[in-house]
């Protein structure tokens, strides 16, 4: 059995809201991921996907539970966690006044890639993503498709064992989204641990080896697509998702009457 590169246990995040008081955005999440696996977090907007991934990326501090990436605890050793991690989301933009090549060099160096191998690594990625033609142009002057390629290259330039993609296809056209999916497949084949969040069912179906359905900060069900089908008797992921969410809503309503109802698990 492969060593878990990502281990999440009882992870919690509560926020203070002026009007609502304490809000539990993530409420005791458990999962782990193996090398060469794409783990998907599937949930509606506001379900807690981004908050969970931000805790894994050490942007946010958990208020409960624990998470370790590549053996490093997110609270105890956040810098080592970030060194082991590539984080990509719609809100991780690039510096517009740097060229593509300078961008890759910068992120390789700052993430601790061996200094004497940086140039070689950058050239390798420039070829891999086919960006040589515009690698010397400033990022701000490139099209969104070109920027996306550089952005993906930026995420993996320091060759991290773990990659987090937070709704990576949001705002992309069909071709760009397909290209992103292909890259994720390639990275999985290279043995990376990939955590992927989305609210697009077809994307999760296509990409993820295992899927965690997240709703109101809790993982309602976790398993392979086949396991989800068997557990729910539904074929399409969309139906599986709706089934799990509806069941959770029912349980929640019942829990109002009798607190302490256990959660669903596969």
């Amino acid at each position: 059995m492969a060593i878990a590169n990502v281990k999440v246990e009882g992870l919690q995040k509560s926020f203070w809201d002026e009007s609502r008081g304490e809000v539990r955005a993530v409420d005791g999440i458990d999962f782990d991921c193996q090398p060469g696996e794409v783990f998907g977090l599937l949930g509606a907007n506001g379900a807690g996907k981004t908050t969970t991934l931000r805790m894994l990326a050490t942007i946010l501090k958990p208020t409960g539970g624990s998470a370790s990436l590549n053996g490093y605890d997110v609270l105890a050793d956040p810098e080592a966690v970030r060194r082991s991690l590539g984080f990509y989301s719609a809100s991780t933009a690039l510096y517009p006044r740097l060229t593509g090549r300078e961008t890759l060099e910068f992120f390789a160096r700052i993430n601790g890639y061996p200094a004497n191998q940086v140039n070689q690594r950058v050239e390798e990625l420039i070829d891999r993503f086919g960006i040589r033609e515009y690698a010397g142009a400033r990022v701000g002057k490139l099209s969104s498709g070109m920027r996306q390629k550089i952005s993906i290259a930026r995420t993996i330039v320091h060759d991290p064992p773990i990659l987090i993609f937070d709704e990576p296809t949001v705002g992309l056209d069909v071709m760009a989204a397909l290209e992103m999916q292909n890259v994720i497949h390639e990275l999985r084949d290279e043995g990376k641990v990939i955590i992927f969040s989305t609210h697009i069912m077809s994307e999760a179906e296509k990409l993820c080896d295992r899927i965690g359905i997240i709703h109101q900060g809790r993982i309602l069900a976790l398993g392979t697509l086949e396991e989800h089908r068997q557990a729910t008797g539904k074929h399409y992921l969309e139906d599986v998702f709706v089934h799990e969410v509806m069941q959770a809503e029912d349980q929640s309503a019942k829990a109002m009457a009798s607190p302490g109802e256990p959660r669903t698990s596969l």
Binding site: A57, R82, S89, I110, N111, G112
Partner: peptide, 14 residues
């Protein structure tokens, strides 16, 4: 404004 803040928060530097 450029949305590079979150990118910067994910680099390994403290």
């Amino acid at each position: 404004e450029r949305s590079t803040w979150e990118t910067l928060m994910t680099v390994s530097a403290s």
